[in-house]
Amino acid sequence: MKTAALLLILLMMLSACAQSRASKIDEVREVVIVAGYEQCPRPAKPELKPLLEEMHLGSRENVDRMMQNIVELLGALKAMNSTIHCYEIQTGRADEK
């Protein structure tokens, strides 16, 4: 029982010290943006055609739709890479690759 009382008193003393040490920010610091970037073009979202549910996966129509979707995704990937390259040019990291 003595140990519990001693630990309780010690805990109360530590919590009192912790509250008195809390600091308040008296001043507001201004943040200055050093580097400015131009916004690069955002690539368009690819329009993917859904597969025909009434046909099986290997049907000619579904295979054609999958191939068209792959072409759309490759075009979107190239557009995303060009946007990344645009930002890398602005940061000077385009030559590192």
Rank of each mutant, 00 (worst) to 15 (best):
Q39C: 15
L48I: 04
Q68N: 04
V32F: 09
A79R: 11
I89P: 06
I89V: 15
A94H: 14
L77S: 14
E61A: 08
P41F: 07
L51K: 10
P43E: 02
L10A: 07
E72D: 14
I9D: 03
E47Q: 08
V28L: 14
C86F: 04
E38M: 03
N62S: 02
E30G: 05
K49L: 14
E96Q: 12
K97F: 09
P41G: 07
R21C: 08
V71Q: 09
I70K: 15
A18C: 01
M1H: 14
I33E: 11
I70S: 14
L11T: 12
D26Q: 09
L52G: 10
Y37H: 06
M1K: 13
I70F: 10
M67F: 13
V63D: 08
V32G: 11
K24W: 05
I70L: 09
V71G: 01
Q68G: 02
P50L: 06
D64P: 07
E88P: 06
I33K: 12
E53C: 00
R65F: 09
Q19E: 15
D64F: 07
N62R: 00
E30C: 02
L14Y: 07
E88I: 00
L74S: 14
N81M: 08
L10R: 02
E47D: 10
G92R: 00
L57W: 10
E53F: 01
K49H: 13
S15N: 15
I89M: 12
M80P: 02
S59R: 02
L6A: 15
V31G: 06
L7K: 06
C86R: 01
L11D: 06
V63C: 10
N69Y: 03
L7H: 00
K45N: 13
V28H: 10
A18K: 07
L73C: 00
C17M: 13
N62Q: 01
D26L: 12
A5K: 13
N81T: 09
A22H: 12
L7M: 05
L48H: 03
V63W: 05
H85D: 05
A79G: 00
R42Y: 11
I33T: 07
Q19A: 15
E72A: 15
S15A: 13
V71N: 12
L6T: 15
G92W: 01
A94Y: 07
A79I: 03
A5D: 11
I9E: 02
V71R: 10
E53N: 00
M66G: 09
A35E: 11
V32T: 15
E27K: 02
S59M: 05
I33V: 09
L48C: 01
Y37I: 00
G36L: 15
V34N: 11
I89T: 08
E72S: 15
E96I: 12
M1S: 15
E53A: 02
L73M: 05
